[in-house]
Amino acid sequence: MNFQPSILFSILLSIAAPFIGMLILGFDRKITARMQNRVGPPILQPFYDVVKLFGKSELMVKKAQILFALMFVGTLLLSTVLLCFGGDLLVIFFLISTGMIFYTLGAYSVKSGFSFIGGNRELYQMLAYEPIFMLTVFSVGLITKSFRVDQIFGLEVPLVAIIPLPLVSMMIVFLIKMQKSPFDISTAHTEIISGPMIEYSGGYLALLKIAHWYEIFLVIGIMSLFFVVPGNPVLTVVSMAAAGLAIYFVSIIIDNVTARVHWNTMLRLSAAIGITLIVVNVAIVYIVAYIAGGA
């Protein structure tokens, strides 16, 4: 434990988190536009969108929706802060899941067909990515012998050198969370018109957008934990940022070369690829340790 992020750094990071997510989203839209040979919106477009939404009048179908939107943002905010302060990965994971439950409840709380199907699909998505996410957290825990984020900084080698395959599986989680093809099924705008978000408007829709910024930061943050270089703070920051951006770039590419699949295809793919990869990798780590120990 020769590197402890300072308190000040953690506070700054948790304040900057949504804006980092926002900037990444802005670059995403720009790069996607360039890949499609378009001009694309300004980098700050997600920010302008949210500012504009806050200026709009709100038309909510049910009061309960507001509560669920606030809870959703609240839990994500909490887990972001936990991540920035090096908290427990397991708690972070459960907080994110709770947030998604609130999001789904918000979708279910209104009487709209598209919102209802969106809620259903959100649950299917959770069914697809939660096992991968949890197993990844577990495999990190097995390696570091703890679920605390700051333990990762105390390892001898970067996590990616020991367990690279869960990172590949996490890519599936990432695609689902970022609402990218082939797994953008819950917000599929040509099928169910943004599903769970359809009955939100004005400031509360803006809240959901901000929650999405948090999500981006959280998932990229957790994935780039694999690239912590122990004992070298500067290199750690550089490699984490580079890894985060690289992961995002890969997801943009995948988004641009695939079509959206059915929810059952998604479940099958995530179970077959995601879970197998993690299990194989953990098994290899143990076998290697056994052989090394036996020899």
Partner: peptide, 19 residues
Amino acid sequence: MPGMLKIIFGNLFKKRATR
């Protein structure tokens, strides 16, 4: 998919088609 990959990478470095 490989054809699409080629196209999107080509587009990244091409002049944009829209005005």
